[in-house]
Design a protein around this nucleic acid. Structure first.
Lengths: 162, 162
DNA sequence: AAATGTTCCGTTATACTATAACAAACCAAA
DNA sequence: TTTGGTTTGTTATAGTATAACGGAACATTT
């Protein structure tokens, strides 16, 4: 569950996180022959700049500032693309989007969402997902995609409330 | 995982399901000193009459037919109440609501949602949830609530597509 | 370089989901 | 029967997401 450890550390160098994520995205898209256009790249960067999941409409003003058209379809198209490429995930409980810390690798991630600071962290959930798929198949149900989202209290907020 | 077995059986007596659920709801509310008003009762019945998760706006016309006011707040209030009482669950991936087959008991349920027929079934996920809570606590995260939703193909649809 | 087909973007409109706020009706208990 | 709390009616609006269509940009072939 190593992927989750970084984001709960409040003092890490997040700019480096972002740069690394952007580099990874660029090389992934190149390898797949997919076009990471300026809009898509900007949207990805904006999503990454926030540890908190970002709503689509929170992204629009920044697009406008950067001189792009900023109607909803623009940002939703970019987000759709980024999701298809596994670079961004949608958190259904929040109607919001967050960068994927390990795109490329097949991701079995769940989201740990803090109710107090809204931080969300992706954690590995391979074992739990396997368990669920297995249980589902006993009912004759074939699993194609899982969404595991956990609400609770992150270590930083717990500390500060004590 | 017995709770899941019924709904994937296409030929069960669903009227009986509904009646049982309504009886259970009535006695639960009575025991808790909560008021299962006509509107709330009707909304619960409507949700139960569908094996497919029902959107709030799909419920409104039926409320109107029954002579009630049918503005959105009416149905959302009823759904809020029913959720608080554990009689109904919201499925975040679908923005839709479905009756809980075992209210009262502490529910650790995940939803198996068929992409083809939209049927959704609540299945026990106690073990998976325990696993996730445990993993989360290793990151210092305290779990308060989990949402596990699975997309896939139900046994009926699988059969018909072969 | 021109033609062609495809992908991406701009734009307008609209659908879908959910809540705020306040007044009126209802109910239960003193 | 007054009082206080809960539920409902009503209007308005906030928030989330997509349809549809034309035009621009790009890649590929000729």
């Amino acid at each position: 569950m190593a992927s989750g450890t970084i984001a709960f550390e409040s003092h890490h160098d997040h700019n480096q996180c972002i740069e690394q994520a952007m580099d990874e995205a660029r090389s992934l898209c190149k390898a797949r022959n997919q076009r990471l256009t300026p809009i898509r790249e900007l949207v990805l960067k904006l999503v990454w700049q926030s540890h908190k999941p970002l709503g689509a409409y929170e992204i629009l003003p920044a697009l406008a500032e950067a001189g792009f058209n900023s109607a909803p379809p623009t940002v939703y198209r970019a987000l759709d693309f980024l999701q298809e490429q596994g670079l961004v995930h949608r958190i259904a409980l929040l109607n919001a989007f967050i960068g994927c810390p390990h795109p490329g690798k097949s991701h079995h991630g769940c989201f740990l969402i803090c109710r107090h600071c809204n931080t969300a962290v992706e954690a590995d959930s391979r074992d739990a997902e396997a368990l669920i798929s297995q249980q589902a198949s006993k009912l004759g149900f074939t699993t194609e995609q899982q969404s595991i989202e956990v609400l609770g209290c992150c270590p930083n907020c717990r500390e500060h409330s004590e």
